[in-house]
């Protein structure tokens, strides 16, 4: 066998025209499939992205709403303080003692210390008193009504409390049948018989 024949055979096997053509065609066909898959991928991925963002927004909105509900589901409590001989409504801030206007049951037309409850985004509050009394007072008629130790308020209202140092007023906020908060008002007295209210 001549060298030329040997090498011709070598190159026809190793760099084969027909084989190369077949490989080219299968690459083209594969390329078409890859293009379709790529198209789908490029369509699906952005779609999933948009969907996940949408879901994320919805979830976070719900959570934000929930947290908003917790923040807004609150109560503001107001008691009365004497300022320059005038009794003025003052908000009880948490952990800050508020000196209450002097009250003498015998000398006053109201049945007790007035405390105004302002509900914020809450369905109702349960007020429970320990070691004291709750009264309702109609300013128009002057009628005083002693109330039960547990009262449910679903609107803003002033209630009147007969208190001493052992009195505790518990406020439980309810929203959609769930307890949203629990707060307490306690009372203390100084040597001059001035009463202080503390919200916790």
């Amino acid at each position: 066998m001549k060298n030329k024949d040997i090498f011709k055979e070598l190159y026809s096997k190793k760099i084969n025209k027909k084989q190369n053509y077949q490989n080219i065609i299968s690459q083209i066909e594969k390329g078409n499939k890859v293009s379709m898959n790529r198209m789908l991928k490029y369509a699906v991925i952005p779609l999933c992205l948009v969907l996940s963002i949408y879901i994320g927004i919805v979830i976070s909105d719900k959570e934000t709403f929930k947290s908003k509900e917790n923040i807004v589901g609150n109560i503001r409590v107001y008691a009365y303080q004497t300022i320059e001989e005038t009794s003025e409504k003052r908000e009880l801030k948490e952990n800050i003692k508020l000196e209450l206007s002097k009250y003498n049951k015998a000398m006053s037309s109201v049945p007790g210390y007035p405390i105004f409850f302002k509900l914020e985004n809450i369905d109702y509050i349960n007020i429970v008193i320990e070691n004291g009394d709750i009264y309702d007072y109609d300013r128009t008629t002057g009628k005083v009504t002693k109330l039960e130790e547990i009262q449910q308020l679903n609107t803003d209202k002033t209630l009147y409390f007969n208190v001493d140092e052992n009195t505790k007023i518990k406020m439980i906020g309810i929203k959609k049948k769930e307890t949203v908060f629990e707060k307490n008002i306690t009372f203390s007295k100084d040597s001059e018989f001035n009463y202080y209210a503390l919200l916790k």
Partner: peptide
């Protein structure tokens, strides 16, 4: 060589 031939024609 084969790879480059194929890539060229593809």
């Amino acid at each position: 060589v084969n790879d480059i031939i194929q890539e060229t024609y593809v």
